[in-house]
Write a protein that binds this DNA or RNA. Structure first.
Lengths: 136, 136, 136, 136
DNA sequence: GTGGTCTAGACCACC
DNA sequence: GTGGTCTAGACCACC
């Protein structure tokens, strides 16, 4: 009755990226939760284990885990590890909030850069999967 | 001998923003060039003048101007000032390149966050000016 | 975990020179790369360390490192340091481009000063290592 | 018996150049002297005249003329203008000194940049007029 | 007046 | 510890 089997998640850390490593870790875990790869009470890989595997400073990982705990996506048990804390509803809401925020931020940035709705529409048309009109 | 009258450009510096001040200055000048408010060989406001007006350190402004010089949007004349270096073609190309890059970066980021084309389309539909289909 | 041992390079800074200090630093690093003393992904001496060693302001060094980053010879990792980004091919090309440019600039300058090919040839003959003809 | 007819000299001022304008003026006058276009006691164009023609600040021109006076290539007469002061011997010597200095400076720079005699020789071979060997 | 380089020192994010 | 941004102020060359 192995209650607490460690579940892993996809993690591609780009150490050269401008995005801080701890943010990359947080994003990877969040997406694993949103896409249901990580479920409620799943035990995630330990700080030490992830550290040696990806050659990342343990403090950096702890920062990511700690912030996710603050945000309510993880909980920790002393001497045991970090566990996922979520529900389908919460997952969905968080995912939608993130989507909304990212799109709004992008539009805000584009306008502050001086681009118009028309500019954006023109460019997005080059990606038919995004802009095409479903007729039915 | 007032061949070189100083041309101004709109500059709203938000000191608290996460975007560095020198980036805000660069963006403002670029957009003034892209939108033809600043034309080839226009003299732009001097480092010191802009410095006292917006209460920004001259070095910060020089950093912005210097990088724009490196990028080919300005040239400087010692003892005289900074001048715009562009052409309608270059302006258009630069603007389009920026638009293309920003949109591509945004999409890349959204996918890496785990969002699908479908997610994006749904969210963009909330901004009819961007996504609406012109039928005629 | 000492994957990234700092590699050093020769640096003779002449504070009194007409050549800006940051240019001297840039040249020293470039030449270390061109001559293979610095290889891809080598960690170079930190801004602060170099600063205290040569008694140069950190900003001056950061300016040099930053420009080399823009030119594609370095990349930086926050909280970690600056690293070399190159390949033998790129190194060779950059070195040859620099050689070509310097020689072309020199010749251009000499002609604009009114000197002829004949003048130059005569003067270069005084430096046998440059002008001598290999007969075999 | 028009003793003091103004002699002109070729002057291409590149206002965008990194070379200070007064240096460009000095070089142009020196080369006109070295090439015998300007002879001893020739009257050169007045500060004011040159200023309006090339749209250069009179102070800049005066700085050039003044330094040439200090160097012994010009002399001035109050209320009359600037005149050439030279001799074929002096002209020749000055020209050769300049040639020697420019070549020595160039070689010094190339070595400090890490290039070898071999590198230079290779590059100069691309300019056959400079490097070719006269066999007879 | 103009730009250009540099210093000393602060404060921040990241590791 | 690392890089990154910014300030205040100095000094220089050039116009």
């Amino acid at each position: 009755m192995k209650k607490f089997e460690t579940k892993s998640f996809l993690l591609d850390v780009d150490v050269k990226s401008a995005i801080p490593i701890y943010e990359q870790i947080k994003d990877a875990i969040k997406m694993a939760i949103f896409s249901r790869q990580l479920k409620n009470n799943d035990k995630i890989i330990s700080v030490r284990n992830l550290s040696t595997r990806h050659n990342i400073n343990p403090l950096t990982i702890l920062k990511a885990y700690g912030q996710l705990e603050t945000e309510g996506f993880l909980y920790s048990r002393r001497g045991s590890g970090f566990y996922v804390k979520t529900s389908p509803e919460k997952s969905n809401k968080a995912k939608n909030d993130l989507l909304k925020k990212e799109v709004a931020d992008f539009l805000k940035k584009m306008f502050s850069l001086g681009f118009s709705f028309k500019d954006l529409k023109k460019e997005l048309k080059k990606y038919p999967e995004v802009s095409e009109n479903d007729q039915n």
